[in-house]
């Protein structure tokens, strides 16, 4: 898993479609993290993540800059998420089902919705790095290498993202306690 995206994309185009698996492994977490902020439950996110990766595979020839794979993939997933939500909404209207999504959620997953919400509100450049670092479990060095930016830029950006997250989290905490009080 130490090869660059560009390397794996080259392999995919050059007769080794199976190597796409490495890109799936690398980005599935980050992609899920991204999609959790776009759709209303984990199952839909998973469905969207899968479909986005499949589409990315078939569109890989159109990707001009292989080192921008992640951003490109997120772009694809945004469209997939939109489509999915639209279909699901129509489905729900048809079935006249109104269930609170969070109630329908599998209880076994302890979801940190507050954090998720805070992450989804981050500006893109901060959010992408958070996704790669904590959802795709890449090290700061790997991120720097992958995105071809200095390590210092990665840590500065993440540090700033922490500051923004803390701000949002403190605010929502305050709001909650106000509501409670």
């Amino acid at each position: 898993m130490t090869e660059t995206d560009t390397f794996y994309i080259g392999r995919c185009k050059n007769g080794h479609p199976d190597d796409f698996r490495f890109l799936v492994k690398r980005y599935q977490g980050a992609l899920m993290g991204h999609l959790m902020g776009r759709v209303d439950n984990r199952d839909t996110a998973e469905e969207a993540a899968q479909e986005s990766l499949v589409r990315a595979y078939f569109k890989i020839d159109t990707l001009k800059k292989p080192d921008r794979f992640f951003t490109w993939l997120l772009g694809i997933s945004d469209r997939v998420a939109l489509e999915l939500c639209r279909t699901k909404r129509v489905q729900k209207q048809r079935e006249h089902i109104r269930i609170e999504v969070q109630q329908a959620e599998e209880p076994s997953f302890s979801q940190d919705y507050v954090l998720e919400e805070a992450v989804s509100r981050l500006p893109d450049n901060y959010r992408h790095l958070i996704l790669l670092r904590y959802y795709s479990q890449m090290s700061c060095r790997q991120i720097a290498e992958q995105l071809q930016i200095p390590l210092g830029t990665v840590t500065k950006t993440l540090s700033r993202a922490y500051a923004l997250l803390r701000q949002t989290l403190t605010q929502s905490q305050t709001n909650e306690s106000e509501v409670a009080g």
Binding site: Q28, G29, M32, E46, L53, Q111, R133, Y135, S136, Q137
Partner: peptide, 9 residues
């Protein structure tokens, strides 16, 4: 992150 990454796509 780990919770969400508990997924085998």
């Amino acid at each position: 992150g780990q919770n969400l990454a508990q997924i085998e796509l």
